[in-house]
Nucleic acid binder design. Sequence first.
DNA 1: GGATAATCGAGACGGTACGTCGAGTCTTTCC
DNA 2: GGAAAGACTCGACGTACCGTCTCGATTATCC
Lengths: 191, 191, 191, 191
Amino acid sequence: MPRPRSEKARQAVLAAMRRALAAGGYGAVTIEGLAAEAEVSKQTIYRWWKSKAAILGEALLDGSLPGADVSLPMTDDLRTDLRAWFSAASAALGKPEVVALARALIAVTATDPELGDALNRRFADPIVEWITQRVERARDAGDVRADADAAVIADQFVAMVSYAALLGRPLSEERVDATVDVLLRGIASGR
Amino acid sequence: MPRPRSEKARQAVLAAMRRALAAGGYGAVTIEGLAAEAEVSKQTIYRWWKSKAAILGEALLDGSLPGADVSLPMTDDLRTDLRAWFSAASAALGKPEVVALARALIAVTATDPELGDALNRRFADPIVEWITQRVERARDAGDVRADADAAVIADQFVAMVSYAALLGRPLSEERVDATVDVLLRGIASGR
Amino acid sequence: MPRPRSEKARQAVLAAMRRALAAGGYGAVTIEGLAAEAEVSKQTIYRWWKSKAAILGEALLDGSLPGADVSLPMTDDLRTDLRAWFSAASAALGKPEVVALARALIAVTATDPELGDALNRRFADPIVEWITQRVERARDAGDVRADADAAVIADQFVAMVSYAALLGRPLSEERVDATVDVLLRGIASGR
Amino acid sequence: MPRPRSEKARQAVLAAMRRALAAGGYGAVTIEGLAAEAEVSKQTIYRWWKSKAAILGEALLDGSLPGADVSLPMTDDLRTDLRAWFSAASAALGKPEVVALARALIAVTATDPELGDALNRRFADPIVEWITQRVERARDAGDVRADADAAVIADQFVAMVSYAALLGRPLSEERVDATVDVLLRGIASGR
DNA sequence: GGATAATCGAGACGGTACGTCGAGTCTTTCC
DNA sequence: GGAAAGACTCGACGTACCGTCTCGATTATCC
């Protein structure tokens, strides 16, 4: 019966959060600032989100956030696929707004592990899933050792992206190649 | 002639920081709280440290912090050495206070990249250095490919420890073994 | 054609106002609270009343408010009549809800002089009128000096009741008698 | 050992309160506004005063507030003395700032009876005391009935001033005279 | 007996002020 | 001159009400 929630206000807050992240990092975001920037009352923010981190979560999940649009290819060549994704992800870390977003995610996780865990799962799981499937497909094709642990490979890639984002150090193309080489050789079949 | 800096006050502040981290995480630490806990005036803190992060840095560097005392062995067997260190580091993440410390370090890095970078270098560099030397020694011994990139290996290990700490997920012994296997096979020599 | 105003809602709001006054005084009354207490929407209140003070006014004027039901007798004896009324009014100040109501009236007057003036007129004027007539009748009967100023007497009584209500100090019977004595003697005829 | 309370800040707040009262009445005073006007932080206000009313109290008690400087004469003639004071008090109600102050006092009393009582005592008691003494002195001189109740006279004067202030109606000189006449005749000795 | 039009409840909205907390600076006294 | 104590300004916190604004649901008329 009451007036329905204003989608406009919601979007304005999420947009303000993204802008604020890019401008000063997660630590510099204030509810007061978001409210002013979004031209929304504080009450409206507190009505719909439990915490600053919750806004971040929704801002990350909502709409197309920059850097998460890297494709997860599925060709016949494992090396090509992995290199394509890893290279794109590394390159995205060259964009300041992507680094800001990633760091915000990390800061939240380090501060509020529960929420952070949920958010990380939301972002990491599809990638882990994809890598796992890719590796298993390669194993079925005989390109990879029978006892290769796909999860280890997946985690190594994700951990490396996370670490590079945290330190704000995009990986060079050479480094991307070297990393893919090492990890693939680590699970390569005898011949 | 002037009165020298009170070492007692300094230690009290650092101790208070470590206790506060364990108690509520880095985000819950306040200068005011540290001052009260350490029975030190706020002025004394501001006189000697530039920021909360600086106190954290000194608290981490100073004295024996739990979890950083993992040994860096140098036997003849690369696998044994790496497994020993990686296993000890992973096990340390089972202790809540170690996770709290590591997360504080990550939170600071995500919030204040400059300081974070310095702190991370301080902690990661010795390990990277050690792994690099160990790998290079193995290469000289012919246990490892001539073109093995020691830096890649080192970073993979460090990134994985950082990521596990962030998510608060200690690695199982099986996972430790699997990870070491993959990475070593990735640089193993032909024979 | 349209739906008429809900008398039920109106009464509920006025009742809620009276209850709220008794519970916490005029300063503690909120529109939001009234709406909740009366199970009425805020909009309904704003549709029909211009201000909190307006609700108070209507609550005071509407129905039998406690303490305003003191009779205004018109016997042949001025002293008896005045004492009867003044005594009853003083006694009413012994009831907390009467004091609350009176204080609310005073608070509104001190805050919003215009409205307060209207409300005070509404309550005081009949009494002033009555006293004036009573005194003038006594003057015609020769019980009172020819130059007696009825308005002064009336105001003295009203001012005293107002002041006693403000301070929440009901007057004792002795004090009532003494006051009536002084004021009547002040206008008594020579013989 | 710590820095002592800033008298400057205290005075600035009290002055701001007096200005705010004159500007918009007690109801329009906000702590936020006082802080801004006094160029003092809210914290400083909350540190030293428990409520808005407490600031008002101190503002009223502190220094020479306008309208409270009416003299309390002690000549040989009771009528002259009372008329002098009552006339001066009535005249003061012609000044808007005096009315604002008085109304603020009344509003506080109607809202916070406990504090109001204390404040009213502080202001009314000296006057009641003075009138009482003046009347008793006249009684000793035989100018007044032996059974005259000085307290009744004192309260009548004070109540009338309070009521006139509440309604913002200064008393005319004629009304002042008439009132003094009635009350004095009310306690006059037989001759 | 429907249509219709203002009412009602509910509650979201942009605001203002609340009273609290901590940040970082300043001032005083003691050692 | 270092240090404890704590007052100072400043700004954000999260809450409570304000007065306005939609909503869908509910009546009393009037056709």
